[in-house]
Nucleic acid binder design. Sequence first.
RNA 1: GGCCUUGUCGUCUAGUGGACUAGGACACCAGGUUUUCAUCCUGGUAAUCGCGGGUUCGAAUCCCGCCAAGGUCACCA
Length: 472
Amino acid sequence: MKVRTRIAPSPTGDPHIGTLYLAIFNYALAKKNNGQFILRIEDTDRERLIEGSTENILYSLKWARIEPDESILKKGKFGPYIQSERLEIYKKYIDRLIENKSAYYCFCTKERLEKLRADQTKNKVQPKYDKHCLLLTDKQIKEKLGNNTPFVIRLNVPQNEEIVFNDLVRGEIKINTNTIDDQVLLKSDGYPTYHAAVVIDDHLMKITHVMRGEEWISSTPKHILIYRSFGWDIPEFIHLSLLRNRDKSKISKRYNHTSLNWYIKEGFLPEALVNYLILLGWSHPEGKEIFNIQEFINKFSFDRINKGGPIFDLEKLKWMNGVYIRSKSISEIKKLSKPFIKYKIENKKLEEILKTIQERLKVFSEINDLISFFFEEPNIEKSILEENYSSSEVKEILSQSLKIIKKNGINEETEKLLREYAEKNKYNIGNFFMVIRISITGRKISPPLIETMKILSESVIEKRILNIINKI
RNA sequence: GGCCUUGUCGUCUAGUGGACUAGGACACCAGGUUUUCAUCCUGGUAAUCGCGGGUUCGAAUCCCGCCAAGGUCACCA
């Protein structure tokens, strides 16, 4: 049997980092087995729907190069790939459940349900539907249906039965049906709930491995019950641990950037984000940390999936992004950085500049800050210029240096001459060059001086140095 | 609270009964290279393996109990 996996995100907002995390693992499992990875949009919650989020999900998966084999864009044999277009299908199948008595109509009002819940909570018993409508006769049901009384359809969960399933990473999990509510399968608006839709779709789309977040463990028995009621084969289940905030709660906006848009805008490389996410959920058999998706696919196995919920560490991601940036060629860096650079720069010069900052760059959004002094006159604080020398000394250093530069141009020989001048006059080398650095770049931290000066050109340097001399 | 899952340095983890005085990575600290920063190299701090029992000649690894954290208990997914 061909392995088929899927992710099933809801279009309820920005594309979520957890969606990518799950996508990567599902993708790898499918690819490992020459199977297919499917993207299904679960838009059955009409109230939380947010316009444009489906497109966003599609885009961010494309950005990350985790592309589905079947989706609303790339139609396969098992469409439609969006649940709102499958309503007829759900209705047909849920009716079957009514026929074989695995499910039943429920006409209870919101008020009754609320009261029931309140009483149960007060008596410290688990809030659960009391199967009130299960007692309705066929005649009563027909009558209410005829009156257009709003209804839902509920799963008739058997009492006191152990549901056992084997999670491929966690092993055997056993849950008693007494802890499970008679789940609504079809809502009064005619849309199925997640629980009904997921089972019907996964079956119809021939999903063999359901790999999803840990939060679904406790509802897995419901799903198994539904599979059973239909007489369908039950897929394999794998529950991945949830990404966490630093307080160990489920990852959220409060502590972390959860929107993939942010990572894209911030200038993270998709391969770095993907690599990092893999590392949070899995460990490489040889202990490697830097590797690509293909290597993950090759080495993937369930027994190396981590069971604990990892805290998302932006610092380590940034480090990893830096590693990836450093590993790229200048022409790649040029292509990648262009969308982030606000200055207009000719190609050749851009390459020169990038060479000086590549190993200093962690995320592309920092790039303007790193290169601004190449294009803008630096604003110089007199105090940092005079940290080690008096203004007359600074003046002397600058005018002498300018002389040397003008006489020799900017090259390695000039560097040697400047150094010799400093030594002769008993200046500390570091402090001496710092005066020049600040005058030219406006900051104490910069790329190597001579490289920087070469790019800036002699005339600009002269102008900046003279400016300082006249100012102090 | 019930049920379920998980529990090794601050963080991510390796570890599947003896090679563990517990290894690696990020972060942090120190030193080296360097005119600054960064990179790179070397070294260091940091986990009595959640706690308590047991099994065993021997346990991070097996068993039992406890504790803690997280998830879940919707006409949300």
